[in-house]
Structures are given as C-alpha cells and as structure tokens.
Amino acid sequence: MQFEFLLEQVVNGLVLGGYYLLIALGLSLIFSVGGIVNLAHGAFYALGAYVSVELTRRLGFGASVAISPFAVALLGILFERFILRRFYSADPILSLLVTFGLAMVAEQAIRMIWGAAPVSTEIPQSFRGSVIVGDFLFSRYRLLILAVVAAILLGIWLLLQKTSFGRVVRAGIQRPDMVAALGIRLQPYMTGIVMLGVGMAALGGAFFAPITTVHPAMGAEIMTIAFVVVVIGGLGSFWGVVISALLVGVVRGIAIHFEPAAGEASIYILMFLVLLVRPRGLLGERIEKFE
C-alpha cells in the first residue's frame, strides 16, 4: 500500500511537471535564440491569468483559455520589437536589468489596473472533481492541462524539427553568424519565438488562474520554479527542459510523501546536486556564442 501511495505521488508529480513545462520551455527558447534571460517572463504568465479572468467573466472559460495566450503573444511582438531587440548583442547584464525592471513595471501596472487584492475565477463544473484510474486519483482539470501541454509539446517539437522555421531557429541558436552570412535575417524568427514563449507562459497563467491565487506578484512567484527547471534541464536544451520539469514535479512529490516540510526545499537540493555533477544542466548543450 505504501508503494502505491508513493507511485501515486510520482504520477501526480509528472502531471505537475507538465504545468511547469509551459512556463519554463518559453524561457529556455528565448534564451537559446536571443541569448536573453527574460526576467519578465513571469509577468506574461500573470497577464495571461488576469486576461483569462476577465475573459471568463465575459465569454466563459473555454474562450478565455483560447484567446488569452494569443492576446498576450501579440503583446510579445511589441516586447520583442521595442525592447528585447535592442539587447541581443549587448552586454547580458543590460538585458537582465531591463527585463527585471520590466517585470516590476508590469507588476505595478497590474496592481494599478486590477488592484492589489486578488481576483478570482472558477473551474467549469464539467472539469471539477477527480477520476480514479486503478488506484490513482487524478484531478480532471489537471488531466485537461496535461493533454494540452502534451499537444503543445508535440507541436513545438514538430515546428522546430520538421519546418523551415525550425531549421533556421536551430541554426540560429548554434551559429547566428552563418545564418546571417546566408542572407537570412534572424529577427522575424526571434519575434516568432518570443510570441511562442510568452504565449505559453500566458496559457500557463490562464490554466492556473482557477486553482491558484491570482494576484499581482504571481509572476515573480512562478519565475523561481521556472528558473530551477531551466537550470536543471540545461539552458538551450528542449528535451533537457522537458525532462527537468517532470523530474522537479516528481522529486517534489516524493519529498512530500516522505518529509512534507521538505517539499519546497527538495527542488533546490535537486538543482544543487545536478549542478555539482553537470554544471551545464542535464542536457545543456555547448553553445558557441555563450562560451
């Protein structure tokens, strides 16, 4: 029985890891292509949540989850065009500072628009409750999230591996100079990657709005875990981030099973151990431009 309980935590951790993935994958992609650690990534997650709360009130849950990521992705175009683009070849400390500042501005802007008090929304009745498969209990709602994440993951993998867009992006990660020499401008591709990244973060916010506190600082909260996932997986590695997100979810679940009070600390211990053995993260690649 004890083993089944543990297994249930492992499976639940995988589901949770899928959610972390939505935030961390975009962060990793933006870093890979643009060389920018986007400290404002959490702000797009928070915006996704707030926009979805507003849209849920007017159009219902389904429409809000569909529209909110696109609305935020459009904001991502402005973000890339007017802010990030100036810092691709600048000292990395400048992009860190500007995205950090932007995160603070975004948090205060949310506070001014929606107030400091949280806003609330609910899961639709049809996704409430749990399903029991074998001995395992799953929240219906999280299964929905997991299915969407799996579909998105497949879509992004196909986009990067099977399309000309993906080929340019992958080449741009490794040798942007060669891509430029071939007469290809990387900037439109970067716009696409930023839209994709912040859109995924906004989808994460929209999905988590009904089951977490939607408040102005929620973006800062999620950034910690997103960074841990990206660092463990290895900056720039698609599968590294996927494996890391699932691993973080599972390790947290196992820690809570045995020692509940250590649940949140366990993921930082995991990061510490991984970096001791592999300073580039689990599947971190050697990227020439960052060496």
């Binding site: 309980f5 639940n12 589901v15 999280r142 909260e221 809570i256 949140e264």
Partner: peptide, 11 residues
C-alpha cells in the same frame, strides 16, 4: 511559499 497542494491532497 507552496502554491501547489496536490501532493498533500493525495495524502
């Protein structure tokens, strides 16, 4: 700082 309670709910 915990925001996800699912492992505790399983317990």
């Amino acid at each position: 700082d915990a925001t996800d309670f699912s492992p505790y709910l399983l317990k």
